[in-house]
Every structure is written in structure tokens, then in C-alpha cells.
Amino acid sequence: MRGFQALLYRDLRLATRAGGGAALALAFFAAVAVLVPLGIGADLKLLGRIAGGVLWVAAILAALLSLDRLFQADYEDGSLDQIALAPMTLETSAAAKIVAHWLTTGLPLTVLSPLLALLFDLPQAGYVPLLVSLGIGTPAVSAIGAIGAGLTISIRRGGLILPLLVLPLLSPVVIFGAGVVSGALSGLDNGAIWLLSAFSLAAVCLAPFAAAAAVRLNLAG
């Protein structure tokens, strides 16, 4: 557990230092959210209706931004070898990195989302569902993204392939996540929140194993 903590704290520190990905992901999230109304026009009724979906898509894209370096930076500078020798399994290390990634991207994105929802004139009933769905769903993005990050470690331009691998796998997150918001707006209890929770829970539990397997085969060097 101490190794888990050490890796978690180090990754948090790296992400928040200058050049870390945390602030960039937030800025990207905001920029995409601002670009959408510019593209489709300032029809507040329409914007309010699509806010949930747009913010969900923007959040996933923003989270993907820093994913390709999740393992790659450690792979390139030799830290990964040292981490592999630590007295904990590679699965635990992968879990620590997933948690760190979520704390530095998923969580801030969730917290920022109501502010951006204001720009879209999201109806009042949608704010809490938006916050809750992002809070529950973004861990799955970090977890499944970590599998892609592990698979593309050794690829020089892995950042280009990673979205192609990860985005199709994330389609249930978008569907259920945005479904939570649209369900609340239409006043229907569509059960999306439970489906989203189940998917996220399964992803967070299983992804460290797949990610660790992917990292392990790249340790061959």
C-alpha cells in the first residue's frame, strides 16, 4: 500500500507541476465547449438540450489528451523498470496511475462542468445529474484509457492511435453518461445512472489487469 501511495503522490505532483497535463486538460475542455456554440449558433433552447452530450464528449476528449503519456513517460526515462521491481504487483501500480489520472483530469473536469453548463443554459434540473454522471463515469474513462496507454507505450506517435483504440470502447460511457442528463431533463427515470455506475465499476475493477498485462509485455525493452 505504501508503494501505491508513493506512486500516486508522485504522479499527482508531476501532473500539477509546470508542464503537467492537469491544467491543459481543463483548458482544452473549456475550449471545446466554447467552440460548439460557435459552430451551431446561439440558440439557447437547442444548446440547453444538447449540453449534457456535448460536455460529456468534450470531457472524454480532454481526458484522452494526457492519457498517452500515462505510462510512456515512465517507459522512456527508465522509471517503469524501477516501478516494475517495486514490492507491489504491476496491477497495483497501474491502479495507482489510474487513480492519479482521474484525480488530475476526471475530477477537475467534473468540478468545472457546471460552469460550462451555464454557457449552454442547461435547464436547472440538469446540473446535479451532469455533476453526478461525470463524477461516476470519468473513472471509467481513466481506467479504459489506461489499457490503451499501456498498449501504445512503445509506439512513438502512440497519441494518434490511442483515441482510435479507446473511443469505441468508451461508447457506453457516453451513452449512459449523457443519458443520465437527458433522462433528468425529460423527467423520466431511465435507469441510466445505474447502468453507468455498473459499467464504471466493472471498468475500474478490470482495467488494471489488462493495463498491467499491456505494460508487462513492453518491459521486454
Binding site: 479504459i144 461508447s171 451513452i175 443519458g179
Partner: peptide
Amino acid sequence: VGAVNLPIIKYSVDW
């Protein structure tokens, strides 16, 4: 990973 996820994707799209 895709094979595990495909039924879920199918279900989510149907939903």
C-alpha cells in the same frame, strides 16, 4: 478487451 466490451456496447446502443 474488445470482446468483453462488445456485448455491453451492443446493449448500450440498443438502450
